[in-house]
Lab assay of single mutants.
Amino acid sequence: AQASVVANQLIPINTYLTLVMMRSEVVTPVGIPAEDIPRLVSMQVNRAVPLGTTLMPDMVKGYA
């Protein structure tokens, strides 16, 4: 199964992502692939992302 990117903490709206904020986990539904974690660093979330939430492409500015 493919691992997705999951929030490792509460990520406030407009926060620039860093490695410590994200982890990879096999979840349903599938979100942003874990292999894209390096690409996500320094990208901004466009909403608050609670701890344990799967990151979806529409949550990250400029990802989709």
Rank of each mutant, 00 (worst) to 15 (best):
A1V: 11
A3E: 15
V5F: 01
V5H: 01
V6W: 02
V6E: 01
V6D: 01
A7I: 07
A7L: 03
N8K: 12
Q9M: 15
Q9V: 14
L10V: 11
L10E: 15
I11H: 00
I11A: 01
P12F: 09
P12Q: 08
I13C: 04
N14Q: 10
N14G: 13
N14K: 07
N14M: 13
T15L: 03
T15C: 03
T15F: 07
Y16G: 12
Y16H: 14
Y16C: 04
L17C: 02
T18E: 11
L19M: 13
V20A: 11
V20K: 14
M21D: 05
M21S: 06
M21P: 00
M21L: 10
M21E: 02
M22D: 00
R23M: 05
R23K: 07
R23D: 04
S24T: 08
S24C: 03
S24V: 09
S24Q: 09
S24M: 10
E25D: 14
V26Q: 13
V26E: 15
T28L: 09
T28Q: 14
P29W: 04
P29L: 09
P29V: 05
V30F: 15
G31V: 02
G31K: 00
I32H: 01
I32V: 11
P33Y: 06
A34N: 06
A34H: 11
A34G: 12
A34W: 12
E35A: 09
E35C: 03
E35N: 06
E35D: 11
D36E: 08
I37R: 08
P38F: 11
P38S: 06
R39V: 05
R39L: 10
L40F: 02
L40V: 10
L40N: 00
V41G: 03
S42M: 13
M43W: 08
M43S: 05
Q44H: 05
V45C: 03
N46K: 09
N46M: 15
N46D: 11
R47T: 13
R47W: 05
A48M: 11
V49L: 13
V49T: 06
V49N: 01
P50Y: 11
P50T: 11
L51C: 03
G52W: 07
G52E: 10
G52L: 06
G52C: 04
T53L: 08
T53E: 09
L55F: 13
M56V: 13
P57Q: 10
D58A: 14
D58R: 05
M59H: 12
M59R: 03
V60A: 02
V60S: 01
V60E: 00
K61D: 06
K61A: 15
G62D: 07
Y63Q: 04
Y63E: 03
A64N: 10
A64W: 03
